[in-house]
Amino acid sequence: MRLWQEFYKGLLKENPILVLALGLCPTLAVSTSLKNALGMGLSATFVLISSNVLISLVKSFIPSRVRIPSYIVIIATFVTIVELVMEAYFPALYKQLGIFVPLIVVNCIILGRAEAFASRRGVVESFLDGLGMGIGFTLTLSVIGLVREVLGAGKIWGYPVSLDFVPVLMFALPPGALLVLGLLLILKQVGDRR
């Protein structure tokens, strides 16, 4: 039951984007389409789970003074794996996500979970925490990506919604990303007050 909680909290109650306001840069930059959003979300989830598990395994060997640099090295290693795999098997996606693939390293969600959770909890809990946070991140990112793709390009997963739909280009552009995230945050706050 308690373990289930560790997984569940990342989805909404402690949603990394909507509640903790972490990982904003990739959220805004790669959410132009559902495909990109899902690609980024799953990559980050992989790194999140792997680094959470590894850090909770080795936490007792790391002197606390150098723990942050060590976490960063662990995270960067997994990011490099993602980078190389994506470049080899999903070159189109790799090109689309561009600079934001290496930047998963500095995605504050991952370091944040490493520091706040994995460095003091067991392996199973850390795994579930990483999974929940990752899915929460991916879901939010996908919602933003879907909204922006439908409104800004008139497409879903690359397929046109309707032939005579005139896209509202702004949603495909940077100001649209900021706006959709802002409105989503307002919705969340309104929901919380109810």
Partner: peptide, 11 residues
């Protein structure tokens, strides 16, 4: 939230 709205208008 309002910070994002302002940032959007600024952008």
């Amino acid at each position: 939230p309002i910070a994002f709205i302002v940032a959007s208008l600024l952008s």
